[in-house]
Amino acid sequence: MRITCPFCGERELGEFTYLGDAKPVRPAPGASQDEVYDYVYLRDNVAGAMEENWYHGGGCRAWLRVTRNTLTHEISSVEPAAGAGARQVVK
């Protein structure tokens, strides 16, 4: 598999580390235990396009949001994580 890092260009799989589903959003402080439980454990078992977190640890160390088809491994988009680099992020 090859992933096109938005910073480095197309690279081989060995440079990347897979984390998993990029959809769950970390609950704000004060969230209930149930909400955090869902964030930590609840995952969709997607057959098809799935947004995933990948780390370009063997390259520029950017976290990436990769849309990958779990059936074909086809990658349809790769976006940097919000905080990759020094972009100003307002939360």
Binding site: C8, R11, G14, E15, G58, G59, R61
Partner: peptide, 10 residues
């Protein structure tokens, strides 16, 4: 330039 890996080493 490439930030890359050689022999599993950055």
């Amino acid at each position: 330039v490439a930030a890359t890996s050689m022999d599993h080493t950055s």
